[in-house]
Simulated scan of single mutants.
Amino acid sequence: MEYAEDEYLMISGIQHFAFCRRQWALIHIEQIWQENLRTAEGRILHEKCHDACQKEKRGSLLISRGLRVFSRTMGVSGVCDVVEFHEAEEGAVLHKHSGFWVPYPVEYKHGEGKSLDADRLQLCAQAMCLEEMYCTDVPKGALFYAASHRREEVTFDSCLRERVRQIFSEMHQDMARGHTPRVKPSKACQACSLKPICLPRLMKHHDVSAYYDDALGRER
């Protein structure tokens, strides 16, 4: 199956979806966005990555910034912060460059590494797009966290790849339905820039009378 271009979803949305399905729907279906300090700092970090020279060569290493990627089979498109092309015995053939090259995506993130796989899923999705575009394997990539100034190398195993495909399938289904789901509030809601719009506290109430009793401070 291949998706039409007008059905493409943003690759970066997989990070939102993995963090909170309701957050993804508010941003990508309802087109609602609000910044806080964290999102502003993250946006500035990505702008700096993309503002640098688009391509540079360092011996057996080619560096491309702001590279646009897509996948017809997953129905997604987006921009990679950095893609390093490492010269190898086998790999992709690049225009105006001899030999073979293996893509290695690098995604820049504000803050520190996380136990949640949202960032790894986004990076793996970029790698899968690169594989489809360049007809070569992309086995690894890296997440660079600004707070620690360290790279976390990610291996794109079969389990991670299958999760990427499954999540994109669910995202397409929700987009087609125009569905914004309810979610169970968690501690993660405190850091979400959409908290004032999402109002996660209201998810706990199951009827109107309970909401009014709580809002007016009345005992039931």
Rank of each mutant, 00 (worst) to 15 (best):
M1I: 05
E2A: 07
E2K: 15
Y3R: 11
Y3W: 15
E5G: 07
D6P: 02
E7L: 06
L9T: 03
L9H: 04
S12M: 08
G13Q: 08
G13P: 04
A18C: 03
A18R: 01
F19C: 04
F19V: 10
R21L: 07
R21V: 06
R21H: 13
W24P: 00
I29M: 02
E30P: 03
E30V: 00
I32R: 15
N36P: 08
L37R: 15
L37H: 13
T39I: 06
A40I: 13
G42H: 02
I44G: 01
L45E: 05
H50M: 08
H50N: 12
H50I: 02
H50F: 10
A52H: 00
K55R: 13
K57C: 05
L61A: 05
L61K: 13
I63D: 03
I63F: 09
I63M: 09
R65W: 04
R68P: 00
T73F: 03
M74G: 04
G75F: 01
V76P: 04
V76S: 09
G78I: 01
V79T: 12
V79A: 01
V79C: 07
V83R: 03
F85D: 01
E89Q: 12
S98R: 14
W101Q: 01
E107R: 11
E107D: 15
Y108T: 03
K109N: 01
G111C: 10
S115D: 09
A118C: 12
L121Y: 03
L121S: 07
C124T: 11
A125Y: 01
Q126G: 04
C129E: 03
L130P: 00
E131W: 05
E132Q: 11
E132F: 08
E132P: 06
M133E: 08
C135N: 14
P139T: 11
K140V: 09
K140S: 11
G141D: 02
L143G: 04
A147W: 04
H149Q: 14
R150A: 11
R151A: 12
E153R: 13
T155N: 12
T155R: 13
D157Y: 04
S158H: 14
S158P: 05
L160V: 07
R161Y: 02
F168A: 06
E170P: 03
H172G: 13
Q173T: 13
D174T: 06
M175F: 13
A176E: 12
T180Y: 02
P181S: 05
P181T: 09
P181C: 10
R182W: 14
S186Y: 02
C192H: 05
L194R: 01
I197H: 13
I197E: 10
C198H: 04
P200E: 06
P200Q: 10
P200L: 02
R201G: 08
R201S: 12
K204G: 03
S209P: 03
D213F: 04
L216E: 10
L216R: 10
L216F: 10
